[in-house]
Nucleic acid binder design. Sequence first.
DNA 1: CGTTAATAACTAACCGGTCATTTATTTACA
DNA 2: TGTAAATAAATGACCGGTTAGTTATTAACG
Lengths: 216, 216
Amino acid sequence: MADSKRQPKFRRRAEARPDEVLDAALDLFIEKGFAATRVADIAARAGLSKGAVYLYFESKEAVLEALVRRALAPIAEQMSLLSHAEDAHPRAAIEMLLRLIAGRAMDPKVAAVPKIIMAEVGNFPALAKLYRRQVLDMAMPVVTGLIERGVKMGVFRPVDPEFTLRSVIGPVIAHVLLHQIFGIGEGLDAHLDRFIDNHIDVLMNGLAASGGSANG
Amino acid sequence: MADSKRQPKFRRRAEARPDEVLDAALDLFIEKGFAATRVADIAARAGLSKGAVYLYFESKEAVLEALVRRALAPIAEQMSLLSHAEDAHPRAAIEMLLRLIAGRAMDPKVAAVPKIIMAEVGNFPALAKLYRRQVLDMAMPVVTGLIERGVKMGVFRPVDPEFTLRSVIGPVIAHVLLHQIFGIGEGLDAHLDRFIDNHIDVLMNGLAASGGSANG
DNA sequence: CGTTAATAACTAACCGGTCATTTATTTACA
DNA sequence: TGTAAATAAATGACCGGTTAGTTATTAACG
């Protein structure tokens, strides 16, 4: 009151606002889900008023879509990286790929997006299509191609690439789900590398002991 | 009005109502998620009025919890089956287990429950605990035990059972997710057996060609 | 000062949950 | 067995709280 330095009660920062809103929305969608998050909450966390959110986004749904788009962009970049990896030895490429995916997927901010999509796919089928087109349709062919090439080169046994894709990424998904959703293997956080080691070991060499009767 | 046969506008069927409500709720939660489903919708699909739903359930949330409980009951039975399987050869037991899980998990009604849990875990942490206690804490030790025994018997190579669990079930989860959420491998529906065959082949024998340098 | 970012108060609609009332079914009894 | 009283099941209108989206107004700042 006696203070002469009246700092303004808000700043005009049109450039930075949209990203800040998306940051806040991501946090809240992770915490409470899309439906349970109020636009007012997003605004509050982003440090502006609810009305201001509507200066930058058409609707609450539009916030979600923008959020997903923004999260997907870097993944598209990763994919171009993976395309380079095609030159490498299939085994080494898959190993690199798995470590890359696992490392990123264990970051809650990254894991959250597929989780939100799974949760909201019923309400917004467009989200599933977006994710499928921007991520899956780019990533999956890279992996199946890698497997296919490995088979042709004779470094992999003759397996079905489409099916085997699931054997490559599935364990990582399982690991992330158990951890993120159910809090299982909490202490294993630091042991992510060891999990990947184990996964690659099993994936490449199989479970069966070499001496045993292993064929189906 | 001219009709002499006045069929009643409702029937008293207190026995059947709760299950019918849960059936309807499951359908709708699958379609639209928990938050987006109105109690009136549930009632309409179950063929009674909204008020009647509250004769049988305390709240909308109580409907969800009852739904999960009902879905979990048969799984607990399955687990006792699995306990029997421990007597069998670890390899055969795992194979049987995988075919069992995959067959059930591809049924949308069954797959829906974990999906709903994943979606609503933010709002209702109790659900995750329920699922963890009633399913995971029962199922996971069976599998890790199986792996452990296989290692001790020498039919499996020395792997970490906790980590390898993820290699066993992960591919099935991936398959179900790709199919249920993103509609990938739609035509592969009939090929579930072939997917499991491929998974077991890779799981047991590994990807690496026998001649190659496969060790990490 | 004029433009525009931002606010704060507002509206309208929706939806979970309640309850007074109606209808179906069962029971008591002549 | 026929009928009326009793009970249980079900309805549907309603209430109150919540919240997405709007708008009149104000404040920042070049």
